[in-house]
Computed example of a mutant assay.
Amino acid sequence: MSVRTAVPAAMRLSWLVLLALMIGEFVTDLPGPGWATTFLPAMVVLALMVATTTLQARAAAPRGEPRPPVEVEPPVTGRWSALNSPADKVPSHGTHGYGQTYAIDIVADPETAEGEAPARPAFRPLWPLFRRNSAFPAFGAPLLAMADATVVTASDGQRDHLSRNSLPGLVYLMFVESSVRSILGAHRVIGNHVVLDLGDGTYAVYAHVRRGSLRVKAGDTVRAGQPIGSVGNSGNSSEPHLHVHLMDSPDLDDARGVPFTWRGVGVPANGETFTVDAAGARIAKARPGDVGGAG
């Protein structure tokens, strides 16, 4: 086992020991001074967390000049808006971890008649704290293979939680839920997901997939444009949306990001919409509005 895999494993074990000691302090009088049963284990956990973050960031950081963008098909149809786009910032999500240097989030943004409220619920400061996933037009939207590929990983057993698109919900997501998910590992951060081997050392990951929606399993081959699952709200996600990125390894803990461009669309910037239909794809500026966090 390498140092980069051993340290995260030690961190998770230390968390379990710390929680057991904390419970023990409430249930019984543990032998020894308090600093030895609570403070010292907490410092060990903190040191291992810092070491884990440092090792993961170092492993995922780009080396040398970035590869030319890989052109693939858009993974959805209909009208969508882009969030956290690499067209505006790299790394797009503020970290190179999990190979997401060039990751992008997209939310369904269907056209509405003049005078009608947008189909996608807006971010609210206080109320409602949470919304059901069915309130969002992205939930259940088909996901399409971006290229002819082989399925490496297909996992869709995690639940789709309620949205976190209010200020208290977003604070909870960022400072509580995301921390716990990070400790549990990449699969809890990206939620239900599928990883495709596109060939030439390039892999695509679709994150936050809807529970039970995957139509493929590891080892299957797919064709570009083939439905492979549905958009969900699992993992570290503020609302139903698709997080997708290309990387150079199927192992999220070992991958580096690979730039992409969608055929006929390019890389939409934050706040831009793009529409994909049977006739092809086009891109246009989105109307002004808030776009929330996604994740």
Rank of each mutant, 00 (worst) to 15 (best):
L162Q: 06
S178D: 12
V189M: 14
S166T: 11
G140R: 10
H187M: 08
Y206N: 09
Y203D: 10
V180K: 02
L162C: 01
I183C: 01
T153Q: 11
V151W: 04
G169E: 08
L198S: 07
N192A: 08
D160L: 04
M174L: 15
R164P: 00
V209P: 09
H161T: 13
R164D: 07
V189P: 00
A149K: 11
S178Q: 12
V195L: 04
R181L: 14
M174S: 12
L144N: 04
T153F: 12
G157Q: 11
L143Y: 07
E177C: 02
L144Y: 15
M146C: 13
L143W: 04
S178Y: 05
V152P: 10
H187W: 07
M174E: 13
G169P: 04
F175E: 00
N192M: 08
G185I: 12
N165M: 13
M146F: 03
R181H: 13
H208P: 12
Y203A: 07
L144M: 05
P168D: 11
A141W: 00
V194G: 05
S179G: 15
G191T: 07
L184T: 08
A147G: 08
G140S: 05
A149I: 05
R159N: 03
V176Q: 02
L162W: 15
Y203H: 14
A186Y: 14
T202W: 02
F175Q: 04
L162N: 03
A154M: 07
V151A: 10
T202K: 05
L184P: 06
L196E: 08
A145W: 10
A147N: 09
R210A: 15
H193K: 01
N192E: 04
V176E: 02
G140A: 07
Y206V: 03
E177Q: 12
V194R: 09
R164A: 15
V151I: 06
V189S: 01
L173C: 00
L170P: 01
N165S: 14
A154Q: 09
R210Q: 15
I183F: 09
T150V: 10
M174C: 12
E177V: 06
D160I: 02
Y172H: 12
S163P: 13
P168S: 05
D160A: 00
R188H: 15
R211A: 12
G191M: 01
Q158P: 00
V152H: 09
A149H: 10
